[in-house]
Computed example of a mutant assay.
Amino acid sequence: MGPIAAERIKLTSTRAPWWSAAAALLTTAGTGLLFAATVAATEPVTVGATQAARVVGMTVLMVVAVLAVTTEYATGTIGTTFLAVPDRGAALRAKAVVVAALVGLVGLAGALGSWAASALLLPGPDLALDGLDEWRQVAGVGLVDAGAAVVAVAVGVLVRRTAGAVALVLVWPLAAESLVGLVPAVGPAVGPFLPFQAADRFLAGAPAGGGLLGSPWLAGAWFALFAAALFAVAVGVARRRDL
């Protein structure tokens, strides 16, 4: 059995990931519809507005990604994993691929559900996916969530403790980067390069004249590069540890 097949079985053989995925899906779609309906009361609803709640689902899915790693450290089964696959990089890459694939699909389903519910239930606004920008704002949620899952797996490997890793992945995208962006001298210069701020710019569309990350695609590429770099650091650290 290959590492990817083994990781797929481990991830899908317990109920917790499925319940968490369902919670993320329903929360994203339901809260997105609620927000879009609120916006519709005062201004025209856009495709991007239907995805305003996507960060809620993303953080739930990042917790799932963290638990896929930290539960193995907590129970000691990570040792069995590394015995079965002596190349720890290959074992962790397989875990990241499986987790990112599941998270990305759930994120995409939530984004499509939020968009479809808004398009069907809100009278008036034209929410057709007519161009690349509209598709990026919806389908891009799945890509961002997959990248966030890789970040969460890396955090799980580096921290190894569930409480600390979960706290980090909750605080980081929800509060920490926003607070850094508010620092007067530092925020405007550093903010666009913070990974989850870059992900937001990828989905929302970076404003013209936004500097190096003025293009949403550059912002998305920067987020992907950060996720890959953090994961590479986590693999390097895992290779140097006893477990």
Score class of each variant (00 low, 15 high):
L121I: 11
M62F: 05
S118V: 03
E43I: 06
R136W: 02
R93I: 08
L127R: 00
L34Q: 06
L112D: 10
P44S: 10
D87C: 03
G142A: 12
A91G: 06
W135C: 08
A53L: 10
V47W: 00
A117Y: 07
L129A: 05
P125F: 03
G32N: 06
T38W: 13
E43M: 14
V85W: 07
V99W: 01
T71M: 12
G89W: 04
A49H: 14
L67F: 12
I78T: 09
L129T: 04
V69P: 00
G104M: 11
V138F: 08
A36Q: 04
G104D: 12
P125Y: 01
G30Y: 00
S20I: 15
A37H: 06
T46K: 05
V45P: 00
P123C: 06
L120M: 13
A91T: 07
L122C: 11
V47F: 05
T80P: 05
A117L: 15
V60Y: 02
G76Y: 10
R136D: 04
A74Q: 13
L25F: 13
M58C: 08
G104T: 09
P86Y: 09
A23V: 13
T46E: 06
P17R: 09
L92I: 08
A119T: 09
P44W: 10
T27G: 05
A22I: 12
A116E: 07
F35A: 14
R88H: 06
A101W: 09
T38M: 14
R54L: 07
L83I: 15
R15S: 15
L121N: 10
G131P: 00
A100F: 08
M58G: 01
A117R: 04
G76N: 11
R54N: 11
V55C: 02
R136Y: 06
R15F: 14
T50N: 05
T28E: 05
G107H: 01
A53P: 01
A29G: 03
A84C: 09
L129D: 02
S118R: 03
F35N: 13
T80V: 14
A139V: 15
L132Q: 12
L92Y: 02
P123Y: 11
L83S: 14
G110L: 04
V98P: 07
F82T: 06
E43T: 15
V85C: 11
T80C: 11
P44C: 09
G107S: 07
T14Q: 14
